[in-house]
Design a protein around this nucleic acid. Structure first.
Lengths: 330, 330
DNA sequence: TCAAAAGTGTTATCCTTACACCCATGT
DNA sequence: ACATGGGTGTAAGGATAACACTTTTGA
């Protein structure tokens, strides 16, 4: 095999830093107050192989330097390198590859340090309004998204022989459309976003110069856009987090050290984007022995006082996959 | 937030190309016959952003150019960038980041094209002998690996306060050691390899100049090494494949178009590295409606003739997670 | 007629899901 | 006393895991 020839490329680490702020899942965004659109992007920094031994160390270091945030859990998501998805002024050769990371932290008590760095936490459902099923099926689905996707699916797909699945089948699979067989799967966040991108229904697709298949006079905005391909990275982060919550105790990275079971459930619901069955949730927590009572009680806020719990750090040693395998509807 | 400064870095795509050859899972390796050690490495190529729009397209392109192989399924695994894990002559600054990929293909009928490119398929268990439980628990575990790990675990861990878990607990968790609570989990391939690396028990760790905690006169080789960090990438590939087989019909990417149910089971067992329960396996295949009979029979090879089946490509449209969720022991 | 591999039928058990009710506090 | 949220027990259904036996061919 011949020696490959390497082209120099720049590597950026892009971080999806997640916290839960009062029942709302939130993502750290940097917005420089300027008038340029989109207003927000995820924080990112260069990877300097001379200064840092691994990507993860590099990431932690610039996140803390720039925002003062100490992230707990860090996990690599995916490496994105599509040309055309990360356009920069005068873009031709020097190419930026972005390695997306998921990082978890607790909601900071005071956001002053963040604000002074031009950053702040934003509820993530403003970027994905169709992913929040906590108050029932989001209206935007039936009112806007599914009709537009139906139009798109009705058009001839120029890539049909290349694509294993037809358009309407993909819509069905991702959005659990219309009837019967495929219900909503809250983990398919990325698939849904990619489908909307391909159909030209999100602003990023138009910005990237994809020929918009649907030539409507004005398309309604489907969630707020983010800079570059950052909404795609966020979709990846949400999907991964929703999946992993079920078999890893990641939720506690975002909880206060002590909490009530209802707070725990609310936070899981915030991430999962749907309601959970109260009794079953509590049984699973108990069965998994994930928490232990502190003995304290929380002063009631208009009802019976709740017992406080803390995470049992040693479960990780005991059981192979200690997560909150929440299943049913709610 | 300040504009980050990018350091130019080289990007290599490293491919773990998997096939099953007569009941043995095999990985495509390139070995240039030279006397330098290790003999084999995974095939890799540069990513040229000017020539290829995405990583995946780039990967398919050089794989086909170099080996004539048309890989079917392709999936990104992980991006590796540790310094010290990819040493090159005169190594300081120009750093190679390798994006690992998993690719699946059918065993080629004739290996001539491959051989002329200096490549070929090798059974993957020669690199991970402790991962093959098809003939029962591998002897190397109790005879070599676990005693060495026990020694290592008995030593003081200099990083104890940083590590969430103690050494012996990690051994227990990864290898389902000694007794009771944690059984062998065939998906933890990467965790096991990383632990062996950290304990200095695989050749790559010594080559990378890690201080070998165990100063034994001569350590027995634990599986054959691969160049650079390629054994780690292969471990990632095996782990991902073993996990994904359970909820995606990936196995058919590596099967002939027509096959008997026993062949199907043998191939799944080859990947999973353990025996499956025959009746339950067949029931799962049937329940999942993954295959349909061709009506043909296979000329018997010393027994009752078996019915031939083919993969039903349209299951993907019907069910959300059509895999072979094999569970039990066997 | 015997070896070798293909193929089938049934039951016990656990986990998931869903149900409806009681308890402790503040107003 | 009643509204509000906290907390529990129990039964139906389905999926999983384990069991042993019959059938069809070639030698």
């Amino acid at each position: 095999m011949p020696e490959p020839i390497f082209t120099p490329i720049e590597i950026g680490l892009t971080a999806a830093i997640v916290a839960v702020e009062g029942d709302e899942p939130a993502i750290l965004v940097a917005g420089d107050g300027g008038r340029d659109e989109p207003r927000f992007g995820l924080p990112f920094g260069a990877f300097d192989p001379l200064a840092h031994r691994t990507f993860e160390i590099g990431l932690r270091s610039w996140v803390e330097a720039q925002t003062g945030l100490r992230v707990g859990y860090v996990e690599q998501l995916y490496t994105f390198g599509d040309r055309g998805r990360h356009p920069r002024p005068g873009d031709t050769a020097p190419h930026v590859v972005s390695i997306g990371y998921l990082a978890l932290t607790r909601a900071p008590e005071d956001a002053a340090a963040l604000r002074s760095a031009g950053a702040g936490f934003e509820p993530w459902y403003r970027f994905f309004p169709w992913e929040d099923w906590r108050e029932g099926r989001p209206a935007i689905l039936d009112k806007t998204i599914l009709p537009l996707l139906a139009d798109w699916a009705a058009q001839r797909d120029p890539a049909t022989p290349l694509r294993p699945l037809g358009r309407s089948q993909r819509v069905q699979l991702c959005f659990g459309a219309t009837a019967g067989n495929a219900p909503w799967d809250e983990e398919k966040v990325l698939d849904r976003y990619e489908l909307l991108y391909e159909a030209g229904l999100v602003e990023e697709a138009r910005r990237d110069g994809r020929q918009v298949a649907l030539a409507r006079a004005s398309l309604p905005a489907l969630g707020d856009p983010l800079r570059f391909d950052h909404r795609r990275i966020l979709a990846t982060a949400i999907a991964r987090l929703r999946a992993k919550l079920k078999y890893r105790p990641l939720i506690f990275e975002m909880m206060a050290p002590e909490f009530t079971l209802t707070e725990l459930q609310r936070n899981v619901e915030a991430i999962a984007g749907r309601h959970l069955h109260k009794q079953n949730f509590r049984r699973l927590v108990e069965a998994g022995a994930l928490v232990e009572p502190t003995g304290e009680m929380l002063a009631a806020t208009g009802g019976r006082p709740a017992a406080l719990f803390r995470f049992r750090r040693d479960v990780v040693q005991e059981r192979p996959a200690p997560g909150l395998r929440f299943g049913g509807r709610g």
